[in-house]
């Protein structure tokens, strides 16, 4: 039962062309068809952006990938295996971590307690398991040091952190524990200019460490800055995908609004 998380693997398996692929994924809530035959792929080691208007189905798709929803039809293949997630825990075990829009941090707990929430390192003393606080604190320091520069002591409570620092903690948590794919739902929506820049740096560093990143964003300039691949959703459908290098902000806006047909 001892939960000894491993360091994020930098030398993953031989590069595959596709890390995640959604094939004809559909999901309805009652009469609302939230997703209609959505097909898209994610390459390993890349930042992929998912854009679209409010209600286009981005979050619903992400929730399918991260195990919160189960698609009615279609398949999701991750790292070469067909997935059948029944809970976010299943997705996490497979190596898919999600940074939720509300960050899912507990304000009254410390940074290290949040990093290890529900994955605490435990020392067995007979029948009882006692927290190995020292080990978690030093591991937390490592996790923070490799990724985020602006996070204060891991012993401080999250309540005292700024919005950007909280985002950094949530991203560190997602990046640790040998995740292969980190999903971020509008990571900079509530941040100022400087903090946004810091989080974007963090996203690049995540990619350089070997994580694939799927980012939902409303900010087209940011999408162009960060991503290598863009997928556009409209009214529950995936209406197009472009290599970021080969497209422009205008073209993406056109796809989002429907001015440009797919």
């Amino acid at each position: 039962m001892t939960e000894q998380p491993q360091v994020a693997e930098k030398t993953a398996q031989p590069p595959r062309d596709v890390l995640l692929s959604c094939d004809d994924v559909s999901l309805s809530f009652g009469n609302v068809r939230a997703l209609v035959d959505v097909s898209l792929t994610l390459r390993p080691g890349e930042i992929t952006a998912l854009v679209g208007d409010n209600g286009a189905g981005k979050s619903t798709l992400v929730r399918c990938v991260s195990g919160i929803h189960r698609p009615d039809r279609g398949t999701i293949t991750f790292d070469g295996a067909r997935t059948d997630f029944h809970s976010p825990e299943d997705a996490r075990e497979a190596g898919i971590e999600t940074v939720h829009q509300n960050l899912a941090l507990v304000e009254d707990l410390t940074v290290w307690q949040n990093l290890f929430l529900n994955r605490e390192i435990v020392r067995r003393l007979g029948p009882v398991g006692l927290l190995d606080r020292r080990a978690m604190q030093s591991r937390a320091r490592e996790m923070v040091a490799t990724l985020a520069v602006n996070v204060p002591a891991v012993g401080s409570r999250v309540r005292r952190l700024s919005g950007g620092q909280r985002q950094a903690v949530a991203i560190c948590r997602a990046a640790g524990f040998s995740s292969k794919l980190v999903i971020m739902d509008e990571p900079t929506a509530a941040l100022g200019v400087q903090e946004t820049a810091r989080v974007e740096e963090l996203v690049f560093r995540l990619r350089d460490e070997g994580h694939a990143v799927l980012i939902i964003s409303h900010n087209f300039a940011q999408v162009i800055r960060l991503s290598q691949q863009v997928w556009v959703m409209r009214a529950g459908r995936c209406v197009g995908g472009r290599r970021t290098a080969e497209t422009t902000g205008e073209e993406i806006v056109g796809l989002v609004t429907g001015a440009i047909g797919s």
């Binding site: 809970s87 976010p88 825990e89 996490r92 939720h100 509300n102 960050l103 899912a104 941090l105 507990v106 304000e107 009254d108 707990l109 929430l117 529900n118």
Partner: peptide, 10 residues
């Protein structure tokens, strides 16, 4: 402290 966050972390 935060039931939503706790639930999100499983």
């Amino acid at each position: 402290g935060s039931p939503e966050s706790a639930t999100a972390m499983g």
